[in-house]
Design a protein around this nucleic acid. Structure first.
Lengths: 254, 254
DNA sequence: GAGTGGTCTAGACCACCAA
DNA sequence: TGGTGGTCTAGACCACTCT
């Protein structure tokens, strides 16, 4: 084999690969502390910035998490919330006054932190979906969901202000069955839903609000609710901690 | 207010924020070149590593993309593929010999790069789902999908080898309607699907195979296909370029 | 108080790209 | 060929955590 043809790989990548092996092999388990920067400097005979680059590569993959003053630790993944996209929105769930979350099978409901409700001018895409003029007032409800004290989702719900103003929908607590039950009482019962799912890296504000470690993407779910006349009654934009969620959609082939 | 209480923000974050403003305001549009490292050093009077840290922060958000020898450029997002999770798997699509992708509305089918088919011992989770003993031979089909020459998805399909071996399913080209049409001919027609959706940062191999820039997550879709007896006939694990895809699920509330 | 990671400096050599 | 980003060194001071 040709001499010196394969050896070209940056030092920091070799160090990162070695650490990754240690994680994969179980030498370092979830929550364990990895060798520190000075350990790597001594072990591999490199400068500190090189050791830091190795850690940066692992952070970018979301495998490790540095803690100031303590060390670098193997990520512990949160318990997955299994979000059953279709069953959870079945009419009987919310029409019976139940929480949509009960269908998610976590065993216990999350804490909802209410961040506010307000009338605001509609963003372009939302206005178009709701069928109101761009800039028209829409009711905006913002909430944060926490499970075991950890934030897992941010949700922003948009409704036609002409429809929802003055109803319990504009209150912090919308009552049993939530917004959908109230919409049904207003004669605008949601009968069909569309969820669009995307993913990207979080903006710094999102990372802070969800307490995301480096290398953790957010999953964006945009749900549109339709009534029997195919009119849009709600648009709900959610940002989920990708380390906390599995989205499940189960359906028949016809 | 307390003196000196607010001014504490690292230089590299201030520089990153200034660049981000430039992107948000349209000063730097998609594909534009940003000021280089030496520009930042001169403009802000910082060392090179500090300027690089600022760029690293933007890369982690997936906003910019460095090109060796050329500069740092604002990311251009790919055209979104709208993947209609439910309609695309309707029986009539593949039973008529059509491509599942035709329902995705991109206007043109992707190129499929066949990476191989083989019998391999089943990974634990797959074996359990397929109802075969752990380590039993399963048929594994690996493919890469490209749109306009760019890779957008990796797919690994698992089937019971006892069922699929010796059939067109074990061939590179499975014929009109694909694997599902062949399963139907074998009396194991898929009638129900479950898709589980996750997201995380890619491993280096995935990033390379999908030509992902830094700061681009992958969306993982694990599809399980059931026949009329609720037996699992296929498990398909897919890794999607999150910058190329929007997943859509539309369903009734009952 | 000792050790950790966070930030920052001031240099260096290299491979790659564009003019 | 000149400028770009990629890698790397050898120091420095700081805030924080742990004990």
């Amino acid at each position: 084999m040709p001499r010196g043809a394969e050896k070209r790989q940056p030092k920091y990548q070799r160090i990162a690969a070695a650490l990754k092996d240690g994680i994969a092999s179980g030498l370092y388990g979830p929550g364990d502390r990895l060798p520190g920067e000075s350990d790597l400097m001594a072990t591999y005979g490199v400068a500190r910035m090189t050791a830091r680059q190795a850690f940066a590569a692992l952070q970018a993959e979301g495998l490790v998490e540095p803690r100031k003053g303590a060390g670098v630790f193997v990520r512990e993944f949160k318990v997955g919330i299994r979000r059953r996209g279709i069953q959870r929105l079945a009419v009987e769930v919310w029409s019976a006054g139940g929480s949509i979350w009960a269908a998610d099978g976590t065993g216990h409901d999350p804490v909802v932190e209410f961040l506010g409700v307000a009338e605001e001018p509609a963003p372009g895409a939302v206005a178009q979906a709701l069928g109101v003029p761009v800039g028209a007032a829409v009711l905006v409800r913002r909430r944060k969901f926490l499970l075991d004290g950890r934030p897992v989702m941010l949700a922003t719900s948009y409704l036609d202000a002409a429809l929802a103003a003055g109803t319990p929908i504009a209150e912090p607590d919308t009552g049993p069955g939530g917004v959908y039950a109230r919409l049904a009482e207003l004669g605008r019962k949601p009968v069909r839903f569309r969820e669009e799912v995307r993913s990207r890296m979080p903006a710094p504000e999102e990372a802070k609000a969800l307490a995301l470690g480096p290398g953790t993407p957010v999953v964006l779910v945009c749900r549109t609710a339709f009534d029997a006349d195919r009119r849009v009654v709600e648009v709900n934009e959610m940002a989920l901690d990708s380390a906390a969620y599995v989205l499940e959609y189960e359906f028949d082939a016809v």
